[in-house]
């Protein structure tokens, strides 16, 4: 509006040249325009940062505890266990000082009976169209002893991943997703924690530290609560599943993935086993 008025005035003046008063009017207009331009910068708001409106959350699927079923099982290594490999932390004296003895690489951690730790087991399909209550607690990952703790973790879409650094050295955590946004961030010693989340399901997102090449972690992002990471014995449990047909997948960082179909009757508890083939 204001600019329009000024232009009109200026145009009127252009038609009748000569008068000193009119010249001064032009000067005033030009000055006003310049002043307005000079000021406008301060008034600009940040539009780029504004977020799109959030959609209304769809209704949460009700699961009847009386009929909910459970899948339990074990992930095993069939065959020879690879020899333990120690991590060479000599690149960072501070890291080496954090450990008394050797630190072993954790890509294959198998118990005495072949149970494989750090396998990610989750419902790959069968839950389509269902919505689950959001997870409230954050999932934690710590940079400790110049390793990621834990090695493998599962998280829900939109759930908070809280990242800490307990080491006396800088780390720079760098998840390398395919379907999510890639990012990296440094945490110098005593840096405050980070809180991030993943927008889409992705199994698995490899995580590295840009400063220490040996550091690795894997994050499984799913849009439901039915996932587990196996412990030392390779055992897992997925409970509270509505009766139905599902594909369960087990992922292991060295051996890849295996899947199985299960049909769960009401209140059933079904045991399954995944056997990865060693060398």
């Amino acid at each position: 509006m204001r600019t329009g008025a000024l232009i009109t005035v200026a145009r009127k003046n252009r038609a009748a040249k000569g008068s000193a008063a009119r010249l001064s009017l032009i000067t005033i207009c030009v000055l006003a325009a310049l002043a307005a331009a000079g000021c406008s910068g301060e008034k600009k708001t940040e539009t780029a940062a504004s977020k799109p409106e959030e959609k209304a959350a769809p209704a949460v699927t009700k699961i009847d505890p009386a009929t909910a079923a459970t899948v339990t099982g074990k992930v095993k290594l069939d065959g020879k266990r690879p020899a333990k490999k120690s991590i060479n932390m000599s690149e960072e004296a501070e890291c080496r000082r954090l450990h008394k003895g050797a630190v072993y690489e954790e890509s294959v951690v198998a118990g005495a009976d072949g149970g494989l730790a750090y396998a990610f087991v989750y419902v790959k399909s069968g839950l389509e169209g269902k919505t689950f209550e959001a997870a409230k607690e954050p999932v934690k990952i710590d940079q400790r002893g110049c390793t990621f703790q834990p090695r493998v973790l599962g998280i829900r879409v939109g759930q908070t991943l809280s990242v800490s650094n307990s080491d006396p050295v800088s780390h720079n955590i760098h998840p390398m997703p395919k379907d999510n946004r890639e990012w990296n961030q440094q945490q110098p010693p005593q840096a405050p924690g980070l809180e991030r989340e993943f927008a889409r399901p992705e199994v698995m997102i490899p995580v590295k530290c840009n400063v220490h090449a040996w550091m690795r972690s894997y994050i499984g992002v799913v849009d439901h609560p039915y996932f587990a990471v196996t412990g030392e014995q390779g055992v897992f449990e997925l409970k509270g599943l509505p009766p139905g047909e599902y594909t369960i997948e087990a992922w292991q960082e060295k051996y890849g993935t295996l899947e199985q179909k299960v049909t769960l009757a009401a209140s059933a508890s079904q045991a399954i086993e995944f056997k990865f083939k060693g060398e």
Binding site: V169, S170, H171, N172, H174, E182, W183, N184, Q185, Q186, P188, P189, C209, N210, V211, A213
Partner: peptide
Amino acid sequence: KDVVDFYVGGGNSNPNRDKEIKSLD
């Protein structure tokens, strides 16, 4: 050392990170 490690890590990602800032791993 923290400064050198900061650059080794490639700084912190954000939409405006300078194109010359890349991980020096």
